[in-house]
Amino acid sequence: MGNFSILLVEDRVTIIENIKGFFSENETRPTLYSATNTIDAWSMLEGFSKLNPIPKILLIDVNRTKEEGILLLNTIRNHPDLKSILVFVITDAAQETNKAAVLKLNIAGYIPTSFQSQELYYCFSVLNDYWNMIEF
């Protein structure tokens, strides 16, 4: 699949570090950017901090970012240059209303996890295999 970059929307430092740690131990190392909130994420996608190239993958927990997260995903889906981003929702809080809302936005995956390091490692192992299989 070649090089690709990921934008992680996450406000917990330990989880960001765990995810960075996972990729530092792997042969395929996508570029990982992180934003602690949806405003910073939007700035990195279409604002003053715009990333070039646009990340292929967005990871977000809509149950932490709540309405702002769903609004961000809606905006991405309606933006001509951003709508093709693959969105993966990773969450430890099973709120069915948010789940139903994001599944309507054609996300690539809704992934429940406890964020415990062992489970997170397995989750990213599977995701990494999947990302390395698909074409962009």
């Binding site: 789940k99 599944l103 995956g109 809704y110 992934i111 429940p112 989750c123 599977v126 995701l127 295999d129 999947y130 299989m133």
Partner: peptide
């Protein structure tokens, strides 16, 4: 192998 990767991914996701 590709189908096994897909299976693992599907099992990870809620649909």
């Amino acid at each position: 192998t590709s189908v096994a990767t897909l299976k693992n991914f599907w099992q990870l996701c809620e649909m």
